[in-house]
Design a protein around this nucleic acid. Structure first.
Lengths: 331, 331
DNA sequence: CTGTTAGCGCATTCAT
DNA sequence: ATGAATGCGCTAACAG
């Protein structure tokens, strides 16, 4: 900038004023400055500007990865962050708790005016230790410390809807694929609870053999787990998968064993990813309502960034069932 | 930092030395400093450190979105960037040329030590105008200015392999779904060329009616385009899709019209996304070799960051065919 | 309208 | 082993 000022024969402040259109600058001076900028190929150093300004006008969305679910969510988030004139950057943690803590290192957080943090692999104790002045909004289905703003889905209700819909379509023995009996709130436990509620509501027993945990949230693991169920001889006529990615594994396993969807087995997913409508016969899925999730989360974050200092808010975003060919019930 | 120094009764430099473990510091002094750091909840200001250091130890991967293909690529890239002790951040452009130029605004680029840029929506003229001292490596299938390092896939060869494999499996009338006759190198044109080459090599004619462009690279658009082909009565027995996402649309369309895969129509994709192995009957796809792509791109970038100043390198990454149930040929 | 001064928080250099 | 001075590049505040 000093170089530009020298080249144009003005002071650095004039250069700054021209570039930021802050104070009015004389026409000829402005022209000279712009010419010098061009000639020298000058561009502002944002690092210096950020240091000076004490803010970066940038928000980070930190998540395990941006495949599938978070990929779709990030599109919605980007839209809303940018509409407020801020920049969105994505950081992946890889899902491991160590990396998540690394990304959470408070010094890194301070590079951003605000942070949207998906708490996938992070437990409540570790989160509790995070102390920073940077506003943070948590996204995710796990329990989280009270003091953070937090947005989660209506997990139990979603799984209940899906399961009830399959019961409506005639299923009686429904596998909760990916479900667990974890204490507290987790995605796998909350959604299992919804399955349980639907079964109970329908007067069907809750047999724990039908809760099938999987080693990791991948289609491959889901496929293997369901193949094992099939081969064990446990009879079932429905699969309530706790995510779409897991449902895809289930579909693969059923096809491999020659079971027809939905005639022999109905299948539901959760998330309503873009792709699942194209996997024949179309996956019935709980829509995870990315728009409202993003709307809430970004709204809360911007409010904090603006200095709002109210108590932490904990929002549950409603979901709805999208019926497709993988189930027999009516929409 | 000054606060910490005061609290500990030392100078700021001592605090800095303690935190960075640069110069040796006396044991008792170090303890006092750490205590003060804890007491005040101090964390370094990375913005200031970056300004001072003139680098950020951070690399950006800029892409249209991180669904599907780029999501998988970014995992490989992250691994390699982090193993060199740098941080990876992702920026999405949304695919529009304006936003891509926005992300490319040279001032933003200078926030990073290096940039991996996917050139999806960006044409060569716009890129030509980008002038910055920040090292950039281009990823993508389009033509790009000579002066940039650039990594692309063996697009033509991949599509040729897929098409030849379907011919081998008995197909004679193969649709190039998503192909175009664009001049120059684009993904859609190069892959169409591979299809063409395979058809010619097999002594089959190249009928332009079998090159079916799509309005955008989505499953929905692909599905619509193929439904139109089916309903037009044009006979075909194979679909060479230029991406897996497009293949998924094709699978959906074929299922909807009651055509069986692979008995009536063979289908191939390109990218070998994680998910396609689970879509019954398993999609035969050209593996886009994320590992080698990432390896090359990150390697080139790190070399540049280290100050290497050789001529721009243009790398073509080899691909291979992964055979699954959607085709009849042998592996 | 334009220039001067000062400081954001850190780390290099040199002095003690 | 520790401290003081200096400047990275920018802009708010004030002076001219």
């Amino acid at each position: 900038m000093a170089d530009v000022a020298r080249e144009a024969g003005v002071s650095v402040m004039t250069v700054s004023n021209v570039l930021n259109e802050r104070l009015p600058v004389g026409e000829t001076t402005r022209a000279r400055v712009m010419a010098a900028v061009e000639a020298l190929g000058y561009e502002v150093n944002l690092t210096a500007r950020h240091l000076r300004a004490g803010r970066t006008d940038t928000v980070a969305f930190i998540a395990p990865s941006f495949h599938d679910y978070f990929g779709e969510v990030s599109d919605e988030i980007a839209l809303r962050v940018e509409s407020e004139g801020r920049h969105l950057v994505l950081e992946r943690t890889g899902g491991g708790p160590e990396q998540e803590m690394e990304a959470l290192s408070v010094s890194r957080l301070r590079l951003y005016d605000g942070v949207l943090l998906s708490v996938a692999g992070l437990d409540i104790d570790r989160l509790e230790r995070v102390r920073t002045s940077t506003p943070i909004v948590l996204l995710g289905e796990r329990d989280a410390p009270e003091r953070f703003d937090h947005v989660r889905l209506a997990n139990e209700e979603g799984a209940r809807l899906a399961t009830a819909h399959m019961i409506d379509g005639g299923s009686r023995r429904i596998v909760a694929l990916g479900g667990t009996f974890d204490p507290g709130h987790t995605m796998s436990s909350d959604r299992r609870l919804g399955w349980e509620r639907a079964m109970t509501d329908a007067g069907l027993g809750v047999d724990p053999r039908y809760v099938v945990p999987i080693s990791e949230y991948s289609s491959a693991a889901a496929r293997d787990a369901l193949l094992e169920v099939i081969d064990s001889g446990l009879p079932f006529d429905g699969v309530c998968s706790i995510t779409d990615v897991i449902a895809l594994g289930a579909i693969s396993a059923l096809a491999e064993r020659g079971l027809r969807i939905p005639e022999d087995v109905q299948v539901t997913g959760f998330d309503n990813l873009e792709m699942v409508q194209f996997v024949p016969p179309g996956l019935t899925s709980v829509d995870a309502n990315h728009e409202e999730l993003a709307e809430k989360a970004v709204g809360m974050l911007h409010r904090r960034i603006a200095g709002w200092d109210g108590p932490a808010e904990h929002v549950v975003v409603p979901v709805r069932l999208v019926v497709r060919g993988s189930t027999r019930g009516r929409a």
